[in-house]
Write a protein that binds this DNA or RNA. Structure first.
Length: 235
DNA sequence: GCGACAG
DNA sequence: ATCTTGTCGC
């Protein structure tokens, strides 16, 4: 498949073409560096409070991206933007892709790997937003969601860090991970240049006592805090 | 045809 | 994602 003419088509058919092309790629697998500290990023976007259902194109969106070195945040970027479309399962990239990409592109320095609140290979065309964003930005990514999109698998044990595979047909696309004892496990997705094992390893290393991995939690906090400081909406 | 369906 | 109410725990 060729490079897409645009990373973020504005129509569902165009997006499906890009997703199918990206899913067929076989990028060089990424592994955490062993000679220096691992930089883990997090990105998150939120929408206006009170918005009902799937929303629609033009909705204001607040998006934040951060870079962490261990428990130290070394970079952050927050911006406001507009949604490209309503939320539709399988087409999250149309709603959040452009805004998320713009925020991560403005992040300096970039992390080695970015956590994204979306699926990766767990997708009808094997190219969820976490996978798609990584391809668009040439950045390894790992997806983190509350639940699978299509994949299924048994829950892991209660011990912190416990993981169990999530399958889509014959492919392991991610894992349930007990990020905190006594809490519902999160879904960790293989993304761009990351397989399920590496994805789980990255999330384990990003944990800091809370259910949500630190970089993702901080990006979410920043996005929501910025929203709270906006009286009416983005200019 | 019907239900399910990342955020 | 956002909303709501209640509950458990530090």
């Amino acid at each position: 498949m060729d490079l897409p003419g645009t990373w973020w088509p504005e129509d569902a058919d165009g997006l499906a073409v890009v997703q199918t092309a990206l899913a067929a790629r076989t990028p060089e697998p990424w592994r955490p560096p062993v000679d220096r500290p691992l930089l883990i990023g997090g990105s998150f976007c939120c929408f206006p409070r009170g918005i009902e259902g799937p929303g629609g194109p033009g909705d204001p969106v607040w998006v934040a991206a951060v870079t962490y070195a261990g428990r130290r945040r070394i970079a952050r970027h927050v911006r406001t933007d507009t949604a490209g479309a309503a939320y539709v399962a399988g087409s999250l990239a149309m709603r959040e892709g452009p805004a998320l990409a713009a925020a991560v592109e403005a992040l300096e320095p970039r992390p080695d790997v970015m956590l994204v609140d979306a699926t990766g290979r767990d997708h009808p065309r094997r190219a969820g937003l976490a996978y798609h964003l990584g391809a668009a930005l040439d950045l390894p990514t790992v997806g983190v969601t509350h639940r699978p999109l299509l994949a299924s698998g048994e829950w892991p044990g209660e011990e912190e860090g416990a993981a169990s595979p999530l399958w889509l047909a014959e492919e392991q696309v991610g894992a349930w991970v007990r990020t905190r004892r006594g809490r519902r496990p999160l879904v960790v997705h293989a993304g761009w240049r990351t397989d399920p094992d590496v994805a789980v390893e990255v999330v384990r290393r990003a944990l800091a006592g809370t259910r949500t991995p630190l970089p993702l939690r901080e990006a979410r906090r920043l996005a929501r805090r910025t929203r709270a400081q906006t009286p009416v909406g983005p200019r």
